[in-house]
Design a protein around this nucleic acid. Structure first.
Lengths: 346, 346
DNA sequence: CACCCCGATGTAACCGTTTACATAAGACGG
DNA sequence: CCGTCTTATGTAAACGGTTACATCGGGGTG
């Protein structure tokens, strides 16, 4: 048996298809009795408008496409949660995929998605958003998530990685640490580069403390490896890992080396993933309002779609979360409240 | 400027729309020169077929809809990851939403999705899948994720919660614990009920050890509350939490009460979320192959779509992961390898 | 009473594909 | 030299909505 179509409903309700359509779109004027008959017939036939036909006719899909570099871990599940809440609130659908962090793959996925969505949200920390925009053919609105290369005029919702890393480094210095090592994210990753720069600038600003950098890849294993490397030389007072997963890896390695955190070596991370506060010791880190970022990015998409206007970018200033691992004498939450800056579109 | 249509491509390539369509669907026979002209024209115009029009014509969307009760935490991000990998491998798209765990909301979401997808995958631990199937109008294939009520003939991919809880309880008994308390998931949740039953059956099988059950809601806070309640009475030898998040809550509460895990009280969880092995002590738990479950559920969908056949269900037997928190004298991984059972469809 | 306006509804063109069927052009055997 | 059989291509009718425009029946106004 075929699905019921608008013509079936029209016939059963003894009206024209136009009237049925008007009822379902709350557009135009329909008399009360006609509306009631239509709704009854639709319920009776279990009619649901065919989204393909509708999108063919209206040139809208009511769907937002999201491409993330990865789907692994709590960071992304938080982001997806924020995005899903916002799309739902707006009656939009969410088409999801990931790109294995590979820009070429992102392009492929983008092309496959582009006729199915009204707008795209992409997180691609590996520069060159020009390629992405090109893959969209310039017709589908694009909103960027997280830091990256030149936004090319597209709205971007990102974290101020530099400010976060700077604040954390300052905190570690304030706690009395002098030899502060940094475990960086992978080369080419722009978020990683920004965090590294924040660390360096803070060291420089506080009297030129010596820097020591080991490169990881944001994974737990690379964090453990990095800690191993750092312990091979003269022991640092503190290790600042470029994200929490690497901090966890460091923690494991330090524990295995028989060192106490924070007494022997202090430790800090970045992201404030939910695990962090359950570690022993609880991890000092930088809190990133990730679900909120996703939510606002969706709002931005919706606004672009509604108004056609290009939409504003926004950078979220993250918040320091001080816990036991950094060896600060005070343990309350430092009050660097989330200051958000509105930027004019370039 | 309009997006290019198949007619634009046909005109530029000096062929008919049928030929263009044949090229893009690798169907029918097209001469080499014609194919080349079509591809050139398409590339030139940046042509991408309109998915709405295509789905109108073919009655397919190449999309699978997924509804989860929640998107919070690592459990779901793992599941989504598994699902996404499989859909991608099959050239399918993934439309995602969640239902706040509410069956009514699940129904609403289902209705909104049903014309946009070829098949639905739903995780709804609150019984009554009949409602879900009804919301689909019986035309869209449905695959169930996780345990629930009567599957009504739909394939289901689930964990053997009973076996997992039974094995864990047996392990705790084997480690010498006698007063073993259980922190259950919420009433009405079928997965929770199955785990509780596994715990009870194991106690009974091992000489009728006394049971002690506190009800939580799978959240960390409820775990802490439950531990508080348990410590108010005579102290149990071991606490078996119905999932890892509650185990974490217990761990916090026990620590605050000045008790050592596992020396004063042993602790175990369920799910083996990635956090678990980073806790102090690392948590003994039950590993659930969640990404794999998602992957196979997608394969099942794809098979149903390809063959029209109803598809088989599958129950995954989870694996015990023994770490320090359970106070077992041996610490190696018990060899209860993942035995998977194929079930005939009901 | 002629006219206009307005609310309610219907008609039919259009959105961009796929595909059944028709057609055309050679090749080939008789 | 004419059917017949391939191979390659074109024509046009769906698919199921939306919506511009036409129509129609009253009610008010001059």
């Amino acid at each position: 048996m075929r699905n019921a179509t608008i013509r079936d409903v029209a016939r059963n309700a003894d009206v024209s298809v136009a009237t049925v359509s008007r009822v379902f779109n709350s557009s135009g004027i329909v008399s009360e009795p006609a509306r009631a008959r239509v709704l009854a017939a639709a319920a009776d036939l279990d009619y649901v408008p065919h989204s393909g036909a509708r999108s063919l006719s209206t040139r809208r899909t009511d769907t937002i496409g999201v491409i993330l570099p990865d789907l692994h871990g709590e960071f992304f599940s938080e982001l997806i949660r924020g995005i899903d809440l916002a799309t739902r609130a707006r009656g939009l659908h969410l088409l999801l995929s990931h790109s294995h962090g590979d820009p070429n793959e992102a392009t492929t996925v983008l092309r496959a998605m582009r006729t199915r969505v009204d707008a795209m949200m992409v997180m691609s920390p590996y520069a060159d958003e020009g390629v992405l925009a090109a893959a969209l053919g310039g017709r589908t609105p694009l909103v960027l998530l997280g830091s990256g290369g030149d936004a090319g005029g597209h709205p971007r919702f990102a974290i101020d990685n530099h400010a976060g890393a700077y604040a954390m480094t300052a905190h570690l210095i304030g706690a009395g640490h002098e030899r502060i090592a940094f475990v960086s994210g992978p080369a080419g990753n722009i978020e990683a580069a920004q965090r590294l720069a924040g660390y360096r600038d803070a060291l420089a600003a506080y009297g030129g403390l010596p820097e020591q950098v080991v490169v990881g890849d944001f994974s737990e294993q690379s964090g453990a490896r990095a800690a191993g490397l750092l312990l091979a030389g003269p022991r640092p007072d503190a290790i600042f890992a470029g994200n929490d997963m690497m901090a966890i890896g460091c923690l494991q390695a330090l524990r295995e080396a028989g060192l106490k955190v924070p007494d022997d070596v202090a430790l800090a991370g970045f992201d404030d993933i939910p695990i962090s506060r359950f570690l022993d010791p609880p991890l000092t880190t930088v809190d990133v309002p990730i679900a909120e970022l996703g939510r606002q990015a969706v709002e931005s998409c919706a606004e672009i779609l509604a108004t056609g206007a290009p939409g504003a970018s926004r950078t979220f200033t993250p918040e320091l979360v001080i816990r036991a691992s950094s060896g600060a004498t005070y343990s309350d939450r430092q009050d660097s409240r989330s200051i958000e800056e509105e930027e004019a579109r370039t």
